[in-house]
Structures are given as C-alpha cells and as structure tokens.
Design a protein around this nucleic acid. Sequence first.
DNA 1: CCAGGGATCCGG
DNA 2: CGGATCCCTGGG
Length: 204
Amino acid sequence: MNEILANNKLQRVFYKREVTVVAKNLLGKILVKNDKKCTLAGKIIEVEAYNGDFDEAAHSFKGKTKRTEIMFNEGGYLYVYFTYGTHFCCNVVTGKKEQGTAVLIRAVEPLIGLDAMIKNRFGRKLKNEKEIFNLTSGPGKVSKAFNITTSCSGLDLLGNRIFILDSKKINEKVIGISKRIGITRSVDLPWRFFINDNPFLSRK
DNA sequence: CCAGGGATCCGG
DNA sequence: CGGATCCCTGGG
C-alpha cells in the first residue's frame, strides 16, 4: 500500500484526455469502492480503450441510446453494462462531453477488502490459495467482486462511492499492448493495455 | 470447445 | 414483434 499516494483522487482533467492515453495511464492506479460496511480496493492492471468515433466495437459507435448515453458524458463517470445474461462490465468514461469514449477495466490486483470481495464473487471462502488469482482476473469478475451493477452506471468518479486513486507512475517498459479480447468488429486495433506478467491478468 | 442468460438493437 | 448479438465465464 505504500505505493498509493495518500488521498490523491484522480481529477476531471485526468479523465478528459484522449481515451488511449487515459487507458494506459490508468494502469497501476487504485480502484476504490466504498460499500456499506467495507472499503474495496484493487490496482488496475488490464484495460481496453473504446472510441465510438470510428471503432465499431464501441457501444457508442451507433450513437446515443438509453443504455449508452452515459458514455457521452465528459470524462470521469462510470459506465456499467450487463451482458450475456450474467455479467456486468465496468468502464471509465473519458474525453470531452458528447465524445463517446471509455476504458473497460478488465482486471485488477486485489489490495483491500479481500474477504468481502471473495464473498461477493464466490459466496464462500477460497477453496485453495491459487483461487485468489481467479478473483478479479476479468471484467465480469471485477464487477462481481466489487459488487458493481448497472445501478452504479453514471456514478461520478469524483464522488465518494467509487473513485480512482493516483499512484506512483509505472515504468513504461512493463506495459504490454495487444488487440482487444472478445470482440468481433474493429478487431485489429491494438487497444488492450496491461502490466506484463501480473498474475491477476485475464490472460496469462 | 460450448451454452447459459437477459438486455438491447434492428429490421419488418 | 422476432431474432441476432453481445467489451463473459465456468465447466467439459
């Protein structure tokens, strides 16, 4: 925890930049959620950028709808969607108002509130010590562990329910870049960013 | 590999 | 309205 810069919440200017810049710079930052009885926190280690201007995989590509209108806010809001009848995915809106860009949080390294995350995610204790690496190693898993649902969509990341803390800047050399996972359109954009060799990645 | 599961979107 | 699709996951 010594890498967290005390009480240093990311501000609007951080989020209002171009989406791939925000995506890369979110690596190493600390996602924090305050629930009724506990605080949950994890280091962001894997993200993907989505840009509705020309990226057919972005929900915002076809314009504003009831579901996606939150993606057209200015940067610094949460966009959560439900998919495959089972999972929630958690995104950080970026850029200027009406732009329609966001960063999908694909994996975090759990730091604080492990017991609560484990309960949210599995509804039981860990079966073995290896299972910790299955706790938050995917976008649906992060949302489950952090108890993030569509009711959180639209929350301001400058508020106190959910926000992101700054941390010491990570070395550019540890950042990996790849194509995005699980999409069928605009598949060649190299817009997945991750911290190399972190054991909590969605793909090892 | 495959199917569950439900919201969403689009075409008729 | 029906049907296809979906930024996924867990279990063979």
